[in-house]
Design a protein around this nucleic acid. Sequence first.
DNA 1: CTTTGAGGTTACAGAAAGGTTACAATTTTA
DNA 2: TAAAATTGTAACCTTTCTGTAACCTCAAAG
Lengths: 231, 231
Amino acid sequence: MADLNKLLIIEDNEEVVEAISIALQIRWPDIRILSTGSGEQGIDLIMNKKPDIIILDLGLIDINGFEVLKRVRMFSNIPVVILTVRGEEADIIKGFELGADDFITKPFKQLELIARITAIARRVNLIGGEDPIVCGNFYFDHSMRTVKYNGKQTTLTHTENSILLKLIQNKNIVVTYDKIAEEIWGINYPDAADSIKVYVRRLREKIEPDPSRPRFLLNKSGLGYLFTTRN
Amino acid sequence: MADLNKLLIIEDNEEVVEAISIALQIRWPDIRILSTGSGEQGIDLIMNKKPDIIILDLGLIDINGFEVLKRVRMFSNIPVVILTVRGEEADIIKGFELGADDFITKPFKQLELIARITAIARRVNLIGGEDPIVCGNFYFDHSMRTVKYNGKQTTLTHTENSILLKLIQNKNIVVTYDKIAEEIWGINYPDAADSIKVYVRRLREKIEPDPSRPRFLLNKSGLGYLFTTRN
DNA sequence: CTTTGAGGTTACAGAAAGGTTACAATTTTA
DNA sequence: TAAAATTGTAACCTTTCTGTAACCTCAAAG
């Protein structure tokens, strides 16, 4: 994915949601913000809407925020930023142990919030602006979602783009279905391989001279795919 | 995907360096810690020693910490955690903008430090994943299901992989048919030896220079197989 | 010497995994 | 809000993997 698109706020205080939304829209005017005050509903939204980043308040009405995080981490690696009034060491440690990516203490500073979200988005490759990758005769500009091969330029869809980025970043190494699934959905999708093979076909049609006799996007049975230019 | 091995602390206060080192060694007993009080020397160390993670104090003697970060980011994406006495918003924002990965405010809590470093290491895949096994001229990556011998890399099937893993783990020792069967099927398969010999043949074709005159995968009649590089 | 048994070797059928295409549902764009 | 693009599933085909069986080779036992 080339940019931060969708963000989920799990927080029951409307004012806080409002404040966060406004802060984020300063930096990402096109961002879509989902929000809910319920942990259960939050988990549903994560599964169905696949946000890029989650902001999670610890004090929810229905379930404890830690519980939400724990359950989310059973199926997903989407970055989670915890929002808390108490800045207590024990909480912070517990949060990190459960797989949180960062902590923000209320009351938070708008600019700090943006800075921390930006840092996470950068880590997870959600932010573009990087140099195009040159690999053999391929010019792959992942922030532009384009590949050029032998003068022929193609535009990729979001999903194709993230798969190809992951594969090119791991040139000559097999990337497992799990890793690819994580890249596409941020979560461990059921029957991921079934969908992935379709996307790989689509990619092959865009970048392979003969899609049915692939030279660059190769499969390793039972494992995953690799990108190579060694032929 | 190894483990957190090498960490660089750029900080001029010896006591702080000491405190951090001790905290880290609790969690990673084998960690190697480099440290320097000079920003210039820090940059040198980063270039030459390639640490996995960098902890950077903002108040250095020679150059400003931000300046160090800026220069590091011109050639490297190694995670940088900033250490600062002032928890001022402006600093935090500037730090993240320059590409910092996290902030820790002095005086810091040991456990929080560990938790934050762990979180970063997890993101960067420094944690988890197994190392490839090096054995003679063989590089066997069990999670990748590949063996490299004299530069030639082969992919193994699931079954071949589990057999070879078992044999290499018991290098120079005969592994009985029973043990191998248990590795493949989890149970004591009927007529296991009949199938195993076929798999061994397939393995030999993949890793032996002359599969019919095996040097590495040897049989002990009536017992089982062994893997050896002593020849 | 023959016999016997264990391992080596090859071929093959069924199972599992990947390739290919079409399509309905959803999301994005205009 | 209608049109276009994208997504994910399902169905079907092709390739790869698995385990068995048949046959071969060699060495130790009778």
